[in-house]
Design a protein around this nucleic acid. Structure first.
Lengths: 191, 191
DNA sequence: ACACAGGTGGCACCGAGTGTCATACTCGAG
DNA sequence: CTCGAGTATGACACTCGGTGCCACCTGTGT
């Protein structure tokens, strides 16, 4: 039973290090912040930093990868009679909640990712892992393979569009943007 | 007028280096191939390699970035009365031509990108640059901003889906896959 | 023959990431 | 309490991608 304890302690370390790193990234930029600086600020050795995060980028994305499972779960939780596209819309809308709740941090994170090339790239790799989970969730709703892939990819693309638009105009309402964006692509056979 | 000559010579060097590097990547993998090995195989110094390509990854993608402009041009070239989604489909279909023409190389490239994490990430960054060009092209067809962003992102996502499916089943016809994939998301207001 | 330009290689350096080892801590068994 | 096993940590050395700097060469125009 000490397994759970260690796992929780490890998670706490990860979040603490990630928050320390994030503060530095926001202040000085991602590329300009060295791992040594993060390690010193977090009170551990450079070597130990890499025991908690496989790379510097993971200090930014590590905690976000888990959201993919929440997203997929949200899709699965939608009523079965709902069309896939509507279910995807509802699931993405769920993710908007935490973002609006701590919108300053969310905005800072989006901005950081947006204007750091390596983070932009990594972001898309994370989307790729989300996509796989979404495709599985859609298979659970008996959506054919190709269609599931297209719908999942498109939904994530829409999510990105909404984030970009929100970043460009913080006054906009993300939920409204998302409804509008999802409406553009609603498949013809749906209501 | 020697400007043009130098530019052409530089391009020839780039393609030659890129081809040498590509061969090594396919044989030994991207991560396992060092820049020193590429430089030696291409007959220049490590330092000079980085004068032709800003990074090792660019030896893979450098030549592909230009395709974005072709893609955008293909959209602009479509008849004005065509709906944006149909125009995007037609433009993406154009890109399929060269891929089928040298399908072995295309397949090897797709496979290389697909199972190299850093290349997967970079690939998406390239898509991002393509997206910007597509959005501009759609603006030229007087498509509103949000809609243009959504349609361009979705079209590129669809293109990716097709590439993935083709990679998974080389016997499939990419053009047919693409038609099917584009049909999934055809906006309701279109024919 | 001269100066000047651009391409090139060599060298030193930085930062990310990894393997290895020696140490310190913790915790359960005796 | 003590011993030993398992684990976290730090220090060190090393590889590799990427950059700045400088010295060299080569061609071109005067």
């Amino acid at each position: 039973m000490t397994e759970g304890l260690r796992a929780r302690a490890r998670l706490a370390m990860r979040t603490e290090i990630a928050e320390t790193a994030f503060a530095l990234f926001v202040r000085r930029g991602f590329e300009q912040t060295t791992v040594d600086e993060i390690a010193e600020a977090a009170g551990l050795s450079r070597r130990s930093f890499f025991r908690y995060f496989p790379s510097k980028e993971d200090a930014v994305f590590g905690l976000l990868y888990d959201l993919g499972e929440e997203l997929a779960a949200a899709v699965t939780a939608r009523p079965a009679e709902e069309t896939p596209w509507t279910a995807l819309h509802a699931a993405c809308a769920v993710l908007l909640g935490p973002m609006l709740h701590r919108s300053d941090e969310a905005m800072a994170l989006l901005r950081l990712i947006h204007d750091t090339p390596t983070l932009r790239a990594r972001h898309q790799d994370k989307q790729d892992s989300w996509r796989k989970l979404l495709v599985d969730a859609l298979h659970g709703r008996s959506v054919p393979a190709l269609e599931a892939d297209v719908l999942a990819s498109a939904a994530l693309a829409v999510f990105d569009v909404v984030c970009r638009q929100w970043l460009a105009d913080p006054a906009a309402d993300p939920a409204a943007l998302m409804a509008e964006a999802f409406a553009v692509l609603r498949p013809s056979r749906e209501a």
